[in-house]
């Protein structure tokens, strides 16, 4: 069923860069007020025909008419975003997709790389039992942006625990919310094979529109033929319903 979305210009008011990651703070009054943890926005930096499409980003935090994105520099749009100066304005569509259900402060949050974004929003709005985040390596200042009590895991062990965040799950936890790269989600699926129902993942996908009209994104249904739309049925799904 339809959700209300809007197009809104946002002004970059602060940017913090940590190697290939960055936190971008925008004055975006309307969307920031409406967006819930787990939802995303479509971002278009320049009003030009190339690159043509906007790009989806989960919201890292939103409060008081201000919205933050946590982004890894990977392609053209993210490179343009990293090059943006404060005071410049870009176009947003949002809020898009479904949100994490407020499951209270006992939930286990697990995020890898830029996938930590929607979980950080949940953690700061509703609290958490455990909040595991995984990055390849230590980056100066990066870990200060997360709430107190976060469990940091680095692949090379240069900071916090060594390995991957899924290494530190028993599989018997209650509700788990996760977002991260495909290998992390696959390992989560194994760990939580007896508990997939209570394991919710936020999926990343290439999207044409971000709000369910182009049929360009999809994830296979686990129990039947066909696909869910990542943008409008998700991006959050119970692992028991999807096959990745």
């Amino acid at each position: 069923m339809p959700r209300k979305i809007r197009s809104e210009r946002g002004e970059l008011i602060k940017k913090r860069i940590f190697g290939e990651f960055g936190v971008f703070t925008f004055a975006l009054p309307k969307i920031a007020e409406e967006v819930m943890p787990g939802q995303f926005v479509m971002l278009k930096i320049k009003d030009e025909k190339d690159p043509l499409l906007a790009r989806p980003f989960s919201v890292f935090y939103a409060e008081d008419k201000v919205l933050e994105l946590f982004v890894k520099r990977v392609g053209r749009t993210t490179t343009e975003l990293f090059a943006l100066n404060t005071g410049e304005r870009v176009n947003f569509l949002g809020p898009l997709g479904n949100a994490f259900k407020n499951a209270g402060s006992s939930v286990v949050l697990i995020g890898g790389g830029s996938g930590v974004a929607p979980l950080n929003f949940y953690a700061r709005k509703y609290g958490f039992g455990r909040f595991l985040i995984g990055f390849p390596s230590y980056l100066e200042g990066l870990f200060d942006i997360f709430p107190d009590g976060v469990d940091i895991v680095t692949e090379d062990g240069s900071f916090g625990k060594k390995g991957y965040p899924t290494d530190y799950l028993s599989g018997d936890e209650g509700i788990v919310y996760a977002c991260g790269p495909l290998p992390m989600l696959r390992s989560l699926e194994k760990k939580r094979s007896k508990n997939l129902e209570n394991t919710y993942v936020s999926l990343e996908s290439m999207m044409g529109c971000g709000f369910g009209i182009c049929a360009g994104c999809g994830v296979k249904k686990r129990k039947e033929e066909g696909y869910f739309r990542v943008c409008s049925d998700g991006p959050i799904f119970s692992f028991s319903r999807i096959a990745i």
Partner: peptide, 20 residues
């Protein structure tokens, strides 16, 4: 119709190719 397998979209210069 379930539609075609993914990826179904690719962006090209000033364009978009779909195989929905």
């Amino acid at each position: 119709r379930a539609g075609n397998p993914f990826p179904r979209l690719v962006e090209t210069p000033c364009g978009l190719i779909n195989s929905i």
